[in-house]
Design a protein around this nucleic acid. Sequence first.
DNA 1: TGGGACCATATGGGGGTCAATGGGATTTGG
DNA 2: CCAAATCCCATTGACCCCCATATGGTCCCA
Lengths: 146, 146
Amino acid sequence: MDRFLSHATNRIDAKGRVSVPASFRGVLAKLDIRELYCFQDFVFPAISAGGPELLDRFERQIAGEDPFSPQANEMSLLIHGGGVFMKLDQEGRLMVSDFIRDFTGITDEVTFVGRADHFQLWAPQVFQEAQAAARQERRLRGLRPG
Amino acid sequence: MDRFLSHATNRIDAKGRVSVPASFRGVLAKLDIRELYCFQDFVFPAISAGGPELLDRFERQIAGEDPFSPQANEMSLLIHGGGVFMKLDQEGRLMVSDFIRDFTGITDEVTFVGRADHFQLWAPQVFQEAQAAARQERRLRGLRPG
DNA sequence: TGGGACCATATGGGGGTCAATGGGATTTGG
DNA sequence: CCAAATCCCATTGACCCCCATATGGTCCCA
């Protein structure tokens, strides 16, 4: 597998760590990603995580604008100020910091959600509801799959 | 790490000092920056800090304009009149002067915010609000990553 | 076909290391 | 000579390396 798919929920231990699903770790290994760039998602209350090239992509987008413009400044505030590099420990776990908890509402469990070229960290219940809402909206618009 | 990333909040002690996050100090060491050039941000109520070459860059931009133009005059007023050099003490702390407090509203805690080639000092709550506003604006514009 | 060996993943916790913080002592500058 | 800044040392707590245990699934063989 070469992309992040499906979702899984894992428990946070007493030290505040959580295991990244093995299938996701496999993708990370395959893409040779050793450090995760994590940032606060622009739409959902979730943390998005992917390789450093995610940040590169954002920075290229900024570079296209006037560097002194308020738009560029705002964008930097989000992707630099709102982003972190994180490392997994030897067992493939990551620390669930306040940076993550405050933004997502995560307390004792994390739902990992695959998004092809990156994955996300959600509070389980929030994810369920967002998914249900998305399904509902799709139904209303008549955009059924198949 | 070769650039300033993420954010962290530290407490100001009884003597008015605050620790610069270790990850930021690591970047400073890597770039061999011993003295910080600090100035009042052009957009947000925050103090920006970086190496002396930041000032050089501003001065080069001024040099490119008519030296007697209102723009050049204004720019100089901001980067010269609104800028200072600061040093860290042996433990990597800096004094939070009135220069910083008055402009940012900082009282007893400082949020350090990475901005790639420099970092900023914010009042924690002001930063939270500015970031939320930036995210909201981005959402309205419909600019998704990728 | 059912039981059990085997394996991979998730989880728990000890202990060392380093960063953040607090405060006394000394120097510096006005 | 006084106030503020800096040096130096101590304490606390968070994070990370390392090893141990639990849990669930698969495969093989009787």
